[in-house]
Design a protein around this nucleic acid. Structure first.
Lengths: 411, 411
DNA sequence: GCACATTTGAGAAAGAGGAACACAAACCTC
DNA sequence: GAGGTTTGTGTTCCTCTTTCTCAAATGTGC
């Protein structure tokens, strides 16, 4: 019986929160802006902006600097920048064959970013949590002493519950119903909230905030690692579903009499467009890893016919599955990411041909299919954005408290 | 570059609008409520509620009546009811083989409701628009003279653009890129806004507002008429997509080497779960209509094996396609509506079996699949809800204007 | 170099809207 | 009928934005 996105019972404080949130979002998303830019973007008056900026500056979340003179007449407007030290998040990622960590400041500045190889096969949740905690300690070393970490975001290759980081399924790691959240909370020993999501969902969030999908309200990201996942942005907001399990496009049935899938089903999209399908079509053993795929890519670049045919057939199946997704969601933009980004040139033509045939004409004309723009780190950057979420929604809760009547009285 | 659902630049007027909206939504959705109920539901103070209710009453949108004594101590709280005459919408529907119209008051009271048969096959847009206008005139006759029509909602069997009612595709009617919006606007000759949407989308809206999906935030409605459409509620809001073409689940490819579809593609879900597939499996000519399907239903109820087998196989394919939808959207609830509602008992077991096999375990446990609750009129009721949308968002814009200083001065 | 238009910041006052509080009214129970 | 409880009423207060006026800082044209 939740109210969805809207909350009832507004008051004047709600207005201030919404306006502060709007300003912090603009600063976080667009970087330094003059006060008058903010007036134009928010529609608030100069006086209101002044008061709100003042609160952000004294709260340590923004810095006012000298104006940049652009040659136009009129009094110059001072530049407001997000204070990267004012609010920092820790981003973590459990990818297919690597672990990563980064510290990211308000405004999107990446302070430090490390990635380590992960040996193939099973690893215990406790081991992974411990290793992530070590990476976290490393990247935290690059922060100045007065930075405040306001949250932790974690990207996971697998089906993870958003509320508590319970991993329902992560075939690459051999996990099933593993309480990653609990382990990580203990290993990190931090008091700030830790938020979890699937790598594809976070790649979508990152592309929407800082990549080619900026300003686009309906976006689908198809993220290929070993399997295939999807991140959905709908009406400008991430689509999470009832428990955060949405976007599992890899397990759409596309071939009812197809091959068995790691999830237990048969004929999932993943069995036709995942790494193993590509390797199979290229005449390689399907359990080959990253290197084997790279080899096929190089062959394709060199014009080798078997490799080209393997990509071409994969593209056909990409188109078949994607047509269903597009017909259901009617997006403006579809981004191919992860391994699929590098495959893009070689799958493009057969993919588009299937879309031409299978997507309803009305939707077909509106949708573009292109590669992602942020590369391999998109899920990690998305994890940072996830962790910034609460702060962007209600910045006032994170500002260094203003002196209040009570505080003065008790002093 | 839209802002999505959120708007920037809040002010105190925003608060009043949001609070009025919250109250009108509660009244519209839940019917008569005492003032103290509203206090509890909105979290506002008694003073605030009083002021807002007062505005609604003088604006003619609500009526305050005597309290209902329920035996509890304390001063009784007067009952606030939505004034059904205060705001009325006109709902229209173009279904597969019928046209319908209704007048619906604030609070959901249906004043009048008519449905006429539509001869099978092509009809020109102008003819349909004219006939709808006639039906509209009929149902408007049942309104009291001082009722204000605040909007028109139109449900269409087909792919329709929300912004202007351009019908991209409606195979049942033989339409392709027909400007229904323009024709209807002329035929009705009304100055209020006319809004359009697909029948499945509106069935979902109706079930979410007034049916079994009330209070459920993530809902999928699969609506079977001749083809199959889908209505999606995500995070408590209808999912429209970039242009309103979302939810076309009937055209998800499920059988890459399947039968040709009316949309031009092959192997669409619709070709396996639509009416013609059922008729084919029951050994009937696939172009049979409503009556032929009803005959198979009666046979199945009588235990006739061919009919049962036809439903069973249809259920299997229903499960295959639905598994993909569930894996992508992670809904709490899936509703089968239209023709599929009556089929439900006979497709249930094979459908659930496919879901067990093909839906990720994490999502599977959360989702219930049941029939719709509002019957055949769900799209029509949804059209009414669609038309109420602007009023629910900003009731103040529709209140009879308060006496202002200017009005007094000019009097 | 200087008047002038232009844009923006600063500060005070006003306006809008809900919260808080005190009090009265209307119900219940005993 | 006294006492407890819940709720409507009315007033005052608080928060936050807008509005208005003035000053400051820039560019332009002579």
């Amino acid at each position: 019986m939740s109210m969805g996105r809207d909350e009832l019972g507004h008051r004047s404080e709600t207005v201030r929160r919404a306006n502060l949130s709007a300003i912090v979002r603009e600063l976080h998303g667009s970087g330094p802006l003059s006060r008058s830019d903010l007036v134009a973007r928010t529609g608030l008056t100069r006086s209101a902006i002044r008061g709100l900026i003042g609160e952000l500056v004294t709260g340590g979340m923004a810095i006012e600097g000298p104006a940049t003179l652009d040659g136009t007449p009129g009094r110059p407007s001072p530049l407001v920048r997000p204070d990267p030290d004012g609010a920092v998040v820790l981003a973590l990622e459990i990818a297919v064959d690597s672990l990563a960590a980064a510290t990211v400041g308000l405004g999107g500045r990446v302070f430090d970013n490390v990635r380590v190889e992960l040996p193939r096969g099973r690893s215990s949740v406790a081991d992974i949590a411990a290793e992530l905690a070590e990476l976290a300690a490393t990247v935290r070393g690059s922060l100045s002493v007065d930075s405040t970490i306001v949250g932790v975001g974690v990207a996971v290759v697998g089906v993870v519950r958003r509320s508590d980081g319970m991993v329902a399924l992560a075939p690459n790691l051999g996990w099933r119903d593993e309480p990653l959240g609990e382990h990580l909370r203990r290993a990190l020993g931090m008091s700030v909230p830790i938020m979890f999501a699937n790598e594809s969902d976070l790649a979508a969030l990152a592309e929407h905030r800082r990549g080619v999908a900026r300003g686009v309200d309906d976006v689908v990201v198809i993220w290929g690692s070993v399997g295939v996942g999807g991140g959905l942005i709908v009406d400008g907001h991430p689509l999470t579903g009832a428990a955060g399990y949405s976007g599992e496009v890899g397990h759409i049935p596309v071939n009812p009499d197809g091959l068995p899938c790691r999830c237990g089903s048969i004929g999932c999209w993943e069995t036709e467009v995942g790494t193993s399908a590509l390797l199979r079509r290229a005449g390689q053993p399907p359990e080959g890893g990253h290197d084997a795929v790279d080899a096929i890519l190089r062959d394709a670049e060199a014009g080798e016919p078997t490799a080209l045919a393997a990509f071409s057939e994969t593209g056909r199946w990409l188109g078949i599955g994607l047509a269903g997704v597009i017909n259901v969601l009617n997006p403006d933009l579809v981004l191919l990411g992860g391994r699929l980004a590098s495959s893009y040139p070689f799958v493009r033509s057969t993919l588009e041909a299937e879309l031409d045939r299978r997507v309803l004409r009305a939707s077909r004309g509106l949708v573009r299919v292109i590669p992602t723009s942020l590369g391999e780190d998109a899920p990690l950057l998305g994890a940072a954005e996830l962790a910034f979420g609460p702060l962007l929604t209600d910045p006032a809760a994170w500002l260094r408290p203003r002196r209040t009547m009570v505080a003065l009285a008790s002093a």
